[in-house]
Design a protein around this nucleic acid. Structure first.
Length: 282
DNA sequence: CCGTAAACCTGGAAGC
DNA sequence: TGCTTCCAGGTTTACG
C-alpha cells in the first residue's frame, strides 16, 4: 500500500498487535523480498529469531519495527506489499513469514516484489531517530516536526516543476502520484508549473493541502482501488470515493464542472482540471 | 543540476 | 476465445 496514509494504516495495525511480542520463527520464501538486506536472507532470519518487537515507526512511505537490541526491521511496501496478521488466504505471493510468540502469523505478501525488508541500526538525524536506510528521506507532512517554511524554501530554490518536487522523497516524503494530484487540485496549481514561479504563500497552501488530504485519507482507512491495498486484517480503505482528481479523466471537475484531463508526466499519469489548474505557457 | 527512459515484477483490463 | 498491448499507489540507475 504505497502512499503515506496507506502505510500509516498498516503501521497502526502493527503497533496495536505486535508491540511487545517475541519472534519465534522466520522464513524467507523469496530472496527478492530481502535483496536490500546486504548480509543476506540467512543473516536476517538469524537476527530476527528471538527478537522482541519494542515498537513501530514510520517516515514517509517507510515503516519499521524497532527491536530489543536497538536495531529495526525496515519495511517498504513498494507497489504491492502487504503486512498481514493472521492466516493468509492466498499464499501465491507470500514472501516472508514470521510467527510471533502468541501464535499470530505476520506475513509479508507482495505480488510485484518491489517492496522488501531489511535490518538496520538507528541513526539520529536532525534530532530524530530513524533507521539508517531512511536517513535520506525528508520529514513528511504528518510529522510533528515537519517544517513547512523550510520545505517552501527548498521548492523555490530548485528550478524544477512542482509535481516533480512533490514526488521527490528527499524534499517532502510520503506523497505519491495520487496525493500529489489531489493536493495540486485542492490548491488549484498545475503540477507542470515551475515551483520557483509560484508564490511562497501558494506553496504553503499546497503543502497544507497535502497535509489535509492525507489526513482525510487516513481517517477513511486509505485509498483502495482493489484488494492489493489493505490493512493488516486484509480490509480495504474507502478514500477512493473521495478522490477529486486522480482517475477522474473525462469527468466533471467537482469545483467548476470543466472536464478533467489526463496528461503523461514522468512516465505516469497526471489528472487535473484545465480550468482550475491551467497549464503553464510553454 | 535537470530531465528522461529503463529497469525491477505480476496480473488485470482493454483492444483486436 | 485467444493474443497483444497498456497500465498500475514506487524507487533506483544510467545517460544525455
Amino acid at each position: 500500500m504505497p502512499e503515506l496514509p496507506e502505510v500509516e494504516v498498516v503501521r497502526r495495525g502493527l503497533a496495536a498487535h505486535v508491540t511487545g511480542r517475541t519472534i519465534s520463527a522466520v522464513r524467507v520464501h523469496h530472496p527478492r523480498a530481502v535483496r536490500r538486506h546486504e548480509a543476506g536472507p540467512a543473516d536476517l532470519t538469524a537476527r530476527l529469531l528471538d527478537s522482541v518487537i519494542t515498537g513501530t515507526g514510520r517516515r514517509g512511505k517507510y515503516l519499521w519495527l524497532t527491536l530489543g537490541d536497538g536495531s529495526a526491521v525496515v519495511v517498504h511496501l513498494g507497489m504491492s506489499g502487504q503486512m498481514l496478521l493472521g492466516p493468509v488466504r492466498n499464499e501465491n505471493h507470500l514472501r516472508i513469514a514470521v510467527l510471533l510468540d502468541d501464535g499470530t502469523a505476520l506475513s509479508f505478501v507482495d505480488q510485484r516484489t518491489f517492496g522488501g525488508w531489511m535490518l538496520a541500526d538507528l541513526v539520529t538525524v536532525d534530532g530524530s531517530d530513524v533507521p539508517a536506510p531512511v536517513a535520506h528521506i525528508a520529514r513528511d507532512p504528518l510529522d510533528p516536526l515537519f517544517d513547512r517554511a523550510a520545505v517552501v524554501n527548498v521548492l523555490r530554490r530548485k528550478h524544477s516543476e512542482i509535481k516533480r518536487q512533490l514526488l521527490d522523497q528527499t524534499v517532502v516524503s510520503g506523497i505519491g502520484n495520487i496525493y500529489a494530484d489531489e493536493s495540486l487540485w485542492r490548491a488549484k496549481i498545475n503540477g507542470a508549473r515551475l515551483a520557483s514561479g509560484v508564490s511562497k504563500a501558494k506553496l504553503a497552501e499546497l503543502l497544507d493541502a497535502a497535509t489535509d488530504v492525507m489526513t482525510d485519507a487516513l481517517a477513511q482507512g486509505g485509498t483502495s482501488f482493489d484488494s492489493l491495498y489493505v490493512n493488516v486484517n486484509g480490509e480495504s480503505g474507502y478514500f477512493d470515493r473521495s478522490l477529486d482528481a486522480y482517475g477522474r479523466e473525462g469527468e466533471p471537475c467537482r469545483r467548476c464542472g470543466a472536464i478533467m484531463r489526463r496528461d503523461k508526466f514522468m512516465n505516469r499519469s497526471s489528472f487535473y482540471c484545465p480550468r482550475c489548474q491551467p497549464r503553464p505557457r510553454v
